[in-house]
Design a protein around this nucleic acid. Sequence first.
RNA 1: GCGGGUGUGGUGAAAUUGGUAGACACGCAGGAUUUAGGUUCCUGUGCUUCGGCGUGUGGGUUCGAGUCCCUCCACCCGCACCA
Length: 825
Amino acid sequence: MDENEYDFRRLEAKWAPVWESERPFDVSDEPDDRPHKYILDMFPYPSGDLHMGHAEVYALGDVLARYWRLRGHRVLHPIGWDSFGLPAENAAIKRGVNPRDWTYDNIAQQRASMKRYAASFDWSRVLHTSDPEYYRWNQWLFLELYNKGLAYRKDSWVNWDPVDQTVLANEQVLPDGTSDRSGAMVVKKKLTQWYFRITEYADRLLDDLDRLEATWPAKVLTMQRNWIGRSQGAEVIFTVDGTDRTIPVFTTRPDTLFGATFMVVAPDSDLASELVSTADPMVRQEFAAYLEEVQKKTEIERQDATRPKTGVFLGHSATNPINGESVPIWTSDYVLADYGSGAIMAVPAHDQRDLDFALKFGLPVRVVVDVPSDEPLDPASSGVAATGDGPHINSGELNGLLKSDAIATAIEMVEASGHGSIKTTYRLRDWLISRQRYWGTPIPIIHGSDGELIPVSLDDLPVELPATEGLDLRPKGSSPLGGAEEWVTVADPRDGSPARRDPDTMDTFVDSSWYFLRFLSAHDDTQAFDPEKVRAWAPVDQYVGGVEHAILHLLYARFITKVLFDLGHLDFDEPFNALLNQGMVILDGAKMSKSKGNIVFFGEELDKFGVDAVRLTMAFAGPPEDDIDWADVSVTGSHKFLARAWRVACDVSSDVGVEPASGSAALRRVTHKLLADVSGLVEAYKFNVVVARLMDLVNNVRKEIDSGAGGADPAVREASEVVALTLSMFAPHVAEDMWEILGHERFVGLQTFPPADQSLLVEDTIVAIVQINGKVKERLEVEPGISEADLTALAMDAVARSLEGKTVRTTIVRAPKLVNIVTAG
RNA sequence: GCGGGUGUGGUGAAAUUGGUAGACACGCAGGAUUUAGGUUCCUGUGCUUCGGCGUGUGGGUUCGAGUCCCUCCACCCGCACCA
């Protein structure tokens, strides 16, 4: 190997061991005066080696971490593994390996790849969520929620695979309604599961999004707002005729109460079965058949709004509290059991779904809002519901009122008679956290023989997973942990009688909802996190990760943070001050996938072009939020640029510390303009522009060396040092080597940017443009301080020929940059 | 259907507050060095009938619009019977 040739393999082999032994980016617990920054990349799931998506997120996250160090901040940039989860278990079943071995083998591989990738992580704080040292505190968190009444059990309808005998996530149900594992038609089954009461936080989760407006992507804010789906309206209470059973309904349009001509109840609700139990045998039979049909439908089929309405009459009627009218009660699957009260008042004239149903089953349609339109058409004959505003008719005291007044008046009316009130409803459901899986955090609850739920004492945590030996991990409808007889059987803490552990494990999103706090006290075995460290570092200043977590992970982490705030463990209630969602790395316009065979492998790219070239390409490809099509970018180009930058450092022949003032003013201006602009650019995530400016600076140094004063020019040294510093954000090996070649002590990543010299930023001359009627005609070199009058005179002179025979009407002057001459006619 | 976003050269993309459109690259063409190729260095490269024309379409505001407003078109993403 020639030391005078740029060779990325040599540089990687040279520097990786140095960083490995010196650990320049570990953050100690010693106090430090520098301002703090907590930069966090979403931690990976260990499902094999790293892929190009990881290459992007860890390249971009490292740009930000390294940037803040260069700005003189103390930066915490930790990494860990989200290592519980289903793929480990699937691999275990399929290949007969131990899920633990599979997981930790993959972690070892990813860890080696990450080190090779040279991200500036603090390797002293690594955590794995599948370590008992971590999930112990996950269990502590569960108990904190349980004690606060935020973790509870309830019956619910879940996706059930009748062949594999297991619960499936919605994502595991294919569009045709079959299981992605067994191919069997998925059905609904009612099971008792653990939930976290996230709905209690719906308002705060929604309202606090306003505080993130400037620092989170608009897309994520919108998605979360839609997901929470706050809807304001009223609850109105109907009464089943001949009984004192009441049915509350939620409506956003209480003003249309006079137009309610029937009610609809969700077929899978308790109310429907209760009502039908006292109906004719004929009705009962029809209902039973309908319910069976509905339950055969998948969630996907059911959500198809274009499907014709179906339903049956429930054999009862109810009284509308606003006008005492009796209306029939039907059931239909367009009403959902778990939204609102699972029952609605149907106003077919003013709601399309109700109208579709009414027309199908011949139910009456009564117009109560006179919606002005070009072609007034009766909804019953047009088939189009009138959803607009207008004066109310056929509505007693509401007649003549417009929507907003009518809503207020209607609510007053039902409130006065004790039949309703203002009400807010949410789309957000409570978070189902039970999983009938092995590879997760055991739920720290003991079931007494009397059915009592007994939380495991904090002293007995962690409840460790039993060994897999002798366990049947195959899906069978209940958790494999239930088969670990010795593990599951415990003495009831109350009286020593036989009791059983809860056999379920927690959703792995629980693990990741607070991991950013654990990094602050990764090895503390006395508490989940140290409040002192939390005060020093949290919340996270900058979070980096994919948009696929826009709802789930980010919503859960926000929820858990608010819970911990309420419990007094934190003094902030939003976990991530700023969020960057990087795009995907795709190939030939499509997402990479094994089946399509369009995969670029992380390791192969590093072998071919080197770590620095791949990282630089990630930053230079375009705005970080956009997808990178690997076919459209040039890693070779990045490699060539890095070699060019490295050679520039080799050509510097002045001494360390040489006074730059005597150097080329033109080159110094380019150098200092970059220094002046780099902060704004990085903080606006314009990494691609920083790289472009860096290339420009290198081109300028090259020119100065080759055709200017040469490598001895002090400005060349100054520029090369700024190149090394700036480049360290993108290409750590090249930057570190340049720094050494330039005669400095390592590490370049621990230096700070010199301040930009403002006096150097002023141009000697600038180009003013002369326009006629807004079109550019001439360019003039002028002094920056030129007066408006002088500039105008110069401009007039420059375009005199074009102005011949024309009358100048007015002149717009923006000295020193622009003159626009407006002519008449 | 509802909500959010994006449209700029052959390609990836730049463009403070409205003020030189296409920075920086890739690709391509030509040249120098070397010469087997590659590397390195230099020059050119939006279109053009050489008048001009150009930021998806059509309009508007303005002395001036990629940027602001309206219309339409295309594509991407999210949600989708949520009462």
